[in-house]
Design a protein around this nucleic acid. Sequence first.
DNA 1: AATAACTTTCTTTTT
DNA 2: GAAAGTTATT
Length: 780
Amino acid sequence: MRQFHLSSDDLATRADNEEAALILQGLNPAQQEAVQATDGPVMIIAGPGSGKTRTLTHRIAYLLATGKARAYQILALTFTNKAAREMKERVHKLVEGDAAKGMWMGTFHATFARLLRRDGEHIGFTSDFSIYDTDDTERLLRSLMERYNVDKKQFSPRSIRGLISSAKNQMVSPEAYTKIAATQAQEKAALLYRPYQQALRRANALDFDDLLLKPIELFEKEPEILNKYQQRWSYIHIDEYQDTNHAQYILAKQLAARHKNICVVGDDAQSIYAFRGADIGNILSFQRDYPGATVVRLEQNYRSTKKILRLADSIIKNNKDQLEKELWTENRDGDHVVLMEALSEKDEAQKAERMIRDLRARGGYSYRDFAVLYRTNAQSRSLEEALRRGGIPYRVIGGVSFYQRKEIKDALAYLRLLVNPNDVASLRRVINYPTRGIGLKTQETIFEYARREGIGPWQAIEQVEQMGLPRRAQNAVVSFRFLIAKHASKAASHGADEVARGLIQETGILQELRKENTPEGLMRWENVQELINAIAEFTTNAGEEGTLSAFLQEVSLLTDADAETDDPNRVTLMTLHASKGLEFPAVFIAGLEEGLFPLAMATQDPKELEEERRLFYVGATRAQEYLYLAHARSRYRYGEQMACIPSRFLDEIDPDVVRTEAGTSYQTRSDRFQASSGDTFSYDRVDPHYYRKSLRSSPKKRRNTAPKRSAPAPGERRVVYDEGAAEIVPGIRVEHPIFGEGKVISMEGRGEQTKAVVFFGGDIGQKKLMLRFAKLRRID
DNA sequence: AATAACTTTCTTTTT
DNA sequence: GAAAGTTATT
């Protein structure tokens, strides 16, 4: 028996009250069913544009309106902070008064950081722990690699970090990982895994993975605490369930074990975060994990035109293994999806710019109605340039967000050090910035001393007089110590923003930036001021919980996508990943080329290729009315111009809903060559001569000579490589005496300089080879 | 110890 | 073509 906090009388009068009826209004029958299925586990399988999040929002409002749950009993986990904020706002609109106050709604990471702030001490974390992002953890690993003599050239800190992270994601302990480590890189990761964890602990710091793992550990160690939260959250909601990883899955399971009122929403076809440990199996096995679960399918799409939906369907049906869904829409047929071929990335960007201008004039759209999507952040540059030239206002999501900027990270590091003196990563970051005469040598002495004495680096700094440093160096350290200590003691009695302002003022960061005397320097200066404002705002708004350390923790979990722009009427530029959950009347997807989308690395592994395809599916289904797909014949990558061939995904789409720019129908290659049949590797057999014919040759500018000139105007002849001698062309498979079999991604240079970029399987990856030296043999 | 000049490597996607 | 790592110079 479940207990409600209301008497049965209350329930009787409220069950079918006006408010609840209103909440159900405007939902389709399937959505209503999902909203009303409030007892026991529920899984909502939903396609794009079917009102997933809306359904979840209404369900929460319904729980409140019918009195089944009080706000504090509801936990809702979303994928981004922004999604949580929007959901909260909508719930507040749907229910009257303060009924929705006190709900816990946020990302997994933010939610469990908050939980650890309250109860982390049970597993040895004080509430002022630092949260280390990718940058901080990489820095930490870098110094560990030095100490353990791991060659940084051979194994990049980034790849080691990735391996450790995925081990943590799957909840594999250091000991267990040592046993299963197979490759050389994995062995190195196994070696560093434990020291890495110890370093984090010593620094009273948690990385993103720890934010999920530590609560699990806490719940296992202290059943009382688990019990408290199980009791409290009688209704649990998880959005984007297909993108949860193993740790998140366990957390949900732990918390839902008591009431089993867990409601998850997801679309397996939109799972695009496997690289981060997301386990698509979580959603596929929900019914097994929660027997008797109600399963609701939301298959009606309210977002896109019939043609766009049909295109999306033709993309996704190339993947195997999916939950069955039949998407349909009552929306109009709509215009054809337009396929654009550009000569270069500049040309492509111009086409996007022209499309936006035309459609705005012709269809009366505003700038905010457009999105330009791409696979990698690096692609934004050319697009930005074209939009800027065309006078079109835009915003770029991702890339460097406010809190990722160097000047902000520097200022934050000072503040983190204030709150948590054990935070080595922050200490290292600011100990000599701005330069104050504490060079590498001195730093080494300090850290070495700390290690020898078995004390924290900050304690070592407190004993700096014992180290026998040169007088100059010692004085520098002493004054740095004084700076931090002075403001730390102030923190006890003054407001967070006042302390922050004082410290930043005295660090000399601001003077450093002003000294630059450049517009960029000025902007950075303003950013730091902006940060201080943000702290002031946070402390006044968050009340009791508005401490400096809470601010610092929340800030490390913010992404650029969460930010609100002052002027929202802009074209949005972002990666396909960042576009998840959003919709726009017109969408332009750029860079549909082999090696870029799908990325070269993904083409070897069918699983990864399927994820790329899902990513294409996600991108295409962001569009409401107009969808443009573009590919360029050549593109600058790795700082060099390379010839590109159209993406295999373009061969897979339904040609009936696509037109070229000229309005003619689009012929996929799949009917020109044997290919097709859904076999992922059939593409490799495509006739290479087709590409040869599509490439034109002209002299390529020599590397490292002549200063950069702007690229030739569109229409001018484009460079590629000397095809005369080339047996080897993009798209074919080759064999290398050492590396084995691989696939040619692109070609560059000419004559003696001709090079091929070849992707080999296994640990080898992508290689650039001079044809003159490398004995490449074509495999047909 | 700090800076300037040069060389190499590398780019998925992100909470 | 940027960022990080290396070497040379002050």
